[in-house]
Design a protein around this nucleic acid. Structure first.
Lengths: 337, 337
DNA sequence: GTGAGTATTGCAATCGATTTCTTAATAGGT
DNA sequence: ACCTATTAAGAAATCGATTGCAATACTCAC
């Protein structure tokens, strides 16, 4: 049915080898035969069979990407960056959405690494460092977005959670707050841990004694944020500001405050992380931290492909990109000038 | 380096053919040898080489998906539905983001259809019907999301743009409006055309004479919506309600109204399409039309794979899913009970 | 015009799994 | 116990492109 390289070869009066050479490296082919072959290729609309090509050349020109939720805007933006750079480098992108399911994640990794893709990008906050190192030890070519991994062979691109979390605390203190609650995400996600760490360091830098009742968990989703705030209020915890480990939970906080009649930012300052689309449109506008998501995606692709094609470790294994505190109404003290 | 089927065969004391049979159809293998082979497979951690498998079996178990913007929530949700169903049917998903670039789109289609994927899903409002039919005539196995195509071989899943647009107009009329503007998207997008058609039919049903100055173009993006509203006001067009062909443009309308001091919904009723995440959070809450995006993605996968594996056309080539008018504050007449 | 050297091109092996065709082994019936 | 029917397993061809090696054609100098 389909047209094969032998068909092209026959019609052009050359051998399949020559056709292949025309299509690939082009080394040592007369421009006359080259033209003739190209002519036939266009006439017949020939396209090389990818499966055969992959098998023989041991390359697929494909990158696998594993994300927890493709419809979450953070991951969608990272993927966008990956897509763009992959396209520029002539790679295809296979996306695997794990729905936050770790089983699925492992399954995908196994599925893809058998010559389905040349390398993989993990954008997963759930998997442990050890597990990730394990894959790399098996000579799987992988890159990580959003966290740091201590392993020679694994390029990482991320923003410094600890650093920006300290900045968040700093900002809240500047606005006059001394009682600052923290709303964490999944307990086993690396981001939760690091943002908590930054929060604690921030408190310490301002000599604010930490109180355990300030910390609640909201599992990174809106419902979790809503419930967490209600718990805090019910337990009569005293706090004038709250740092949510992502914007999604901050939305839940807004909802709970609405129901409880708590005014933002007058009675409670709120700040999130992610710079979700919604954060700019909600009232009052939500302060947040913006991460260069597109750039992170692009950078990891660059690094991985470079490593893949050069066959050796790239110079800058670890790339830390700057994130940016975006102060909006939800955390601004109206009493200050 | 990697473990191959012959290695497994050797260690298990059988032929490669037997190992293959154990892994695939399992027809005619003693449970004793089967167990032994499985044992060895696990010991060695053998995974079949996908490239070889694809070449020999002429199948890739992969679906290509072409979308204009992966970070647009509408497409992200459709993709999520595709991903889930593909996973259930053991297919992989290759995503191609065209950034609304038609050249790129054609390039991707050619790239993928050469045994890189078994079939493709186009979620593209830009390509013409003729072009799409052209691919199908070349025996490319494709499915369409979001529009109807007149072609035997192409399964389509969509919501009825005309129908819900009439409902939108109907709703606005019920709220007391007779002067209703329409904000279109790209002129060459099928959605723009059909929503306009529904809008016009809606006006006619209510015997409202149509005025050409009511129609503006906003290219489906926020900036376009912003500029379009300003143009309408500048031209002193009279209208008390506006139907934006998507929520994104409605956001632009909100911004323009804010600057011009136009109150929503008191002075202008606004309604969009898409049920964007933002629409629920913006003030006033934006009325919109919700499409079952996940379901659309899942349905097209079902249909395509069914067709692919049965080898014949599925019964329900055309699937029309119900969309749902979501009335919120932006279009509710405060004077009505 | 001849020979050395290089530029083109073809032949055939190869990538790793699947599958058809055979052969060997087992089961079943009388 | 013997012959047939059926099942289990192996040998080898196959999918379609790439590539090392061999062969031929061509160029140029003397």
């Amino acid at each position: 049915m389909d047209i094969k390289i032998v068909d092209v070869a026959a019609k052009a009066g050359v051998s399949p080898a020559t056709v292949s050479r025309v299509l690939n490296n082009n080394s040592n082919v007369t421009s006359k035969t080259k033209d003739r072959v190209m002519q036939v290729i266009h006439e017949l609309g020939y396209q090389p069979n990818a499966a055969a090509k992959n098998l023989r050349s041991q390359k697929t020109m494909a990158i696998g990407v594993i994300v927890p939720e493709i419809n979450n805007s953070y991951y969608a933006e990272v993927i966008k960056g990956i897509e763009n750079q992959a396209y520029a480098l002539k790679y295809k992108v296979i996306i695997c959405d794990t729905s936050n399911n770790k089983e699925k994640e492992l399954e995908f990794i196994n599925l893809l690494m058998n010559k389905t893709v040349d390398c993989m990008i993990l954008v997963t906050p759930m998997m442990s460092d050890d597990e990730i190192c394990h894959w790399a030890d098996l000579d799987y070519s992988i890159g990580i977005v959003g966290r740091y991994i201590e392993h020679d062979k694994i390029p990482c691109v991320y923003t410094d959670n600890v650093k920006f979390s300290k900045e968040v605390v700093n900002h809240l203190v500047e606005q006059g707050h001394r009682e600052i609650a923290f709303l964490s995400g999944y307990a086993d996600a690396i981001d939760s841990y690091e943002r908590l760490e930054g929060y604690l360091k921030g408190l310490r830098e301002h000599h604010i004694p930490f109180r355990p009742e300030w910390i609640e968990n909201g599992n990174f989703n809106k419902q979790g944020g809503y419930e967490a705030l209600k718990r805090l209020v019910e337990k009569q915890v005293k706090f004038t500001a709250i740092y949510a480990a992502n914007d999604e939970m901050a939305l839940g906080i807004y909802q709970a405050c609405g129901e409880l009649g708590i005014k933002i930012p007058e009675q409670l300052a709120v700040i999130g992380v992610d710079n979700n689309r919604v954060s700019r449109y909600i009232t009052p506008q939500l302060s947040t931290v913006n991460q260069p998501k597109n750039k992170m995606g692009g950078a990891i692709v660059d690094r991985l492909i470079d490593q893949l094609e050069s066959g050796e470790m790239t110079e800058n294994r670890v790339i830390i990109l700057e994130s940016q505190l975006i102060v909006r109404d939800s955390s601004r003290n109206p009493a200050l000038p």
